[in-house]
Write a protein that binds this DNA or RNA. Structure first.
Lengths: 230, 230
DNA sequence: GCGGAAATAGCACATGCGTGTTAGTTAAGC
DNA sequence: GCTTAACTAACACGCATGTGCTATTTCCGC
């Protein structure tokens, strides 16, 4: 069999994905057109369409690739060990990594927003992946605040916490941080970085402390009791 | 002087505005095109362009008109007297009027979102009008929760409250409700109406009550500031 | 009546989009 | 060197958009 020139499709697609990300940052997900991305990458539309049959396939790939890229960028940052003067300060500095407080994080937030928009318009069964990951992060944050042992791996943090109070405050905190990020970008005049940080810390201080360790945080048998939430 | 046929421009523009609102609900603010709105209203583009010179003028008018219409629809509802079993319940039922919990309020939220998007892309000096109004509403809510006299008129509520704790919790609550609304529409699977209501009430219960004017901030050793029940 | 300004309807042009098709180019295997 | 499949580039079609321009209709004041 004769094998003509071969190119690495995955690598090509990654190259296109990088160009598409630049387009998203400049014009939003709606600007991710076949022509636009091809021009950004310096290719012709015909070439691009050897790797993506249509616009949906292109956007779908870009959303997936962007999600992965953001994960790889953000996760190490929130897992970075830090010297904090208090639990509140430690958790606040973690959560601030998620807020669009400077140019770099504003870019990341714009990408997250584009992904959320995509997920809203193309709902997948099993719920939003990014939502579940964010919830796990806030669950960890609240557990830390209340003095629980942090979950070892990320999969563990994806499960509901045995302490229902952790679940409740994780939901409250998650929702609040979502709103905070939205206000920072939508009404930056009314929500400058300093105000955002103060509000975040104020809410963290409002998280009630765990009751004294009558029962240490031993993971109980696999079945958590039915919780009112969710 | 000869006066030809005269039509009420304001009334025409209002008619166009109503058609544009229908278009926004169907296709978003991006769908507000000269052709689209004209077709929705049953006119030709040439006619429409006697009242709006270009697309920007059309969208600008629509945003303004929609803001006014929403104000007129929502304000009486949040001011409706209610019989509540508690302060938390009373405030919760007010704030729920702002959440996209049913078809009607989802429509209103979609319109609010379109306005916020417009304001973000076309920032005006003096900050966002809608943001300030929302903040005033939450300020009132927190004041109510803490047992203050409610402000008489709306202009009064637009000013910062003398109690700094009211200002702080108004900001926290405002941000939280923003996030709640966003999650309800963006990830409805993870944030159904019942959960949203429970989270809202949980946060309202976390608002610290006003200290009785007996002993303000005498901090007993090792006891964190006043906390809600439970 | 009727002149004429306002109002209306419609067309034309340039632009940008997704997508289908087609001709040219490249390079591995024979 | 030749063949052939993959790759590249470009064009064409249909559609939608904003906007400028031009007939056509309407109706008040004379």
């Amino acid at each position: 069999m004769r094998v003509p020139r071969l190119v690495d499709h995955d690598q090509r697609r990654a190259e296109l994905g990088a160009a598409a990300i630049r387009v998203i940052l400049r014009e939003g997900l709606g600007g991710v057109t076949v022509r636009g991305v091809a021009a950004e990458a310096g290719w012709s539309t015909g070439s691009l369409r050897h790797y993506f049959r249509n616009q949906h396939e292109l956007q779908s790939y870009v959303v997936e690739a962007t999600t992965d890229a953001l994960r790889r960028r953000v996760l190490p940052r929130v897992r970075r060990p830090r010297t904090a003067s208090s639990a509140v300060e430690g958790v606040a500095s973690i959560l601030e990594e998620m807020l669009p407080l400077d140019a770099g994080r504003r870019e990341e937030y714009a990408l997250w927003s584009a992904i959320v928009e995509w997920e809203r318009q193309h709902p997948s069964e099993g719920g939003s992946v990014t939502w579940n990951e964010q919830r796990a992060l806030h669950r960890q944050a609240v557990a830390l605040l209340r003095g629980h042992e942090p979950a070892q791996d990320l999969d563990r943090a994806a499960l509901p916490h045995p302490d229902p109070e952790v679940e409740l405050w994780a939901a409250l905190l998650h929702t609040f941080v979502d709103g905070l990020a939205a206000q920072i970008v939508n009404t930056p005049g009314q929500m400058p970085a300093g105000t955002a940080g103060r509000l975040l810390r104020a809410l963290l201080r409002a998280v009630p402390p765990a009751v004294p360790p009558v029962v240490p945080p031993v993971v109980p048998p696999a079945v958590p009791p039915a919780r009112p939430d969710r």
